[in-house]
């Protein structure tokens, strides 16, 4: 059991780049194109690893250190992420707070590295990043609070294993609200449509991509890989919530979870294909609405528990 629980983070590290491949394929399908290979990100990473580095004269040690810190944070977050009924290697009460703050540290490093270049574009991207995340974090936490109340557990492991089919039968509205909120937060945090267009080519409209303009070679590889892991983590959280089927058997659970992840990437791909980008000014409003969804769920929960 102990060893097996280490397998899951390992598979996350291996499979994370796959998600963007799937998403891109879905989007290509919707656009009537063939699209790049599902393994495209692996190729990219491999290629970047073998390139020589270019640094801006304005930069300092910060931008050289940042990719390592960012990736570390995300790897550690993977260690905390549970897989349905199976607890993560490290799980304790309140671990979701640490998870969120690890992501926060990663963001801090990204933003500082962006500012390190002294580029106006990267500064702008950083500015947007901190704005959106400042609003997104409370919403995310409110969702957790609903789940804590619902499951009575303070840790991710308990929450993940606590949501079963029965729960979906009796408390579907609550969970749907939270799931919806989280889905949108996931899109925002991972620079997906409708918040950010990962494929845009205009610096002025980017958020995440503009912050990493000045990376090259291995640094860029780490950044790209980190982004993939981040998507994986948010996807994982969502899968734990919306796939209520929990197995005791390892391979069944693994298949279920991975299936869930596949589903999530499909959903993202579809969303990206059918929605248009929001005006940047409207993003906070939508994020606050996501928080409001969780809040409504919380209030319903409160009223229920009071009966």
């Amino acid at each position: 059991m102990h060893l097996i629980s280490w397998l899951f983070p390992l598979s996350a590290l291996l499979l994370a780049p796959l998600l963007s491949g799937i998403i891109n394929r879905v989007k290509a399908y919707f656009a009537g194109r063939k699209g790049p290979s599902i393994l495209q990100l692996y190729y990219d990473l491999f290629k970047l690893m073998h390139k020589s580095s270019v640094y801006s004269r304005s930069t300092s040690l910060v931008i050289r250190l940042a990719p390592a810190v960012i990736l570390t944070c995300l790897v550690l977050a993977c260690l905390i992420l549970p897989w349905g009924g199976f607890p993560a290697p490290v799980s304790f009460a309140g671990d979701f707070i640490l998870l969120i703050y690890l992501l926060g540290l990663a963001r801090f490093a990204t933003v500082l590295a962006a500012l390190d270049t002294g580029s106006a574009f990267e500064g702008m991207g950083a500015s947007r990043e901190v704005q959106f995340s400042a609003v997104a974090e409370p919403s995310l936490l409110l969702g957790f609070l609903v789940l804590i109340m619902h499951t009575g557990s303070l840790g991710l492991a308990g929450i993940a294993s606590g949501i079963t089919i029965v729960d979906w039968q009796i408390a579907a509205p609550l969970l749907v609200l939270v799931a919806f909120a989280w889905f949108f937060i996931m899109l925002a945090e991972n620079s997906r449509m409708p918040v950010d267009d990962p494929n845009t080519h205009l610096e002025l409209t980017m958020i995440h991509e503009v912050m990493v303009l000045d990376y090259s070679s291995a640094d860029f590889a780490l950044i790209q890989y980190g982004a993939a892991l981040k998507l994986w983590i948010f996807g994982g959280l969502l899968v734990n919530l919306i796939i209520p089927v929990k197995f005791d058997v390892v391979w069944l659970q693994a298949v279920t979870f991975l299936g869930g992840m596949f589903l999530i990437s499909l959903l993202i791909g579809i969303t990206e294909s059918i929605t248009a980008r929001l005006k940047l000014l409207n993003v906070p409003k939508v994020l606050v609405s996501a928080g409001a969804f969780s809040l409504i769920a919380l209030i319903i929960k409160l009223v229920e528990s009071y009966q």
């Binding site: 073998h50 390139k51 580095s53 270019v54 640094y55 801006s56 270049t117 574009f121």
Partner: peptide, 11 residues
Amino acid sequence: RANQVSTTGTW
């Protein structure tokens, strides 16, 4: 190719 580092202006 870690040791091949070149510098340039910011993009």
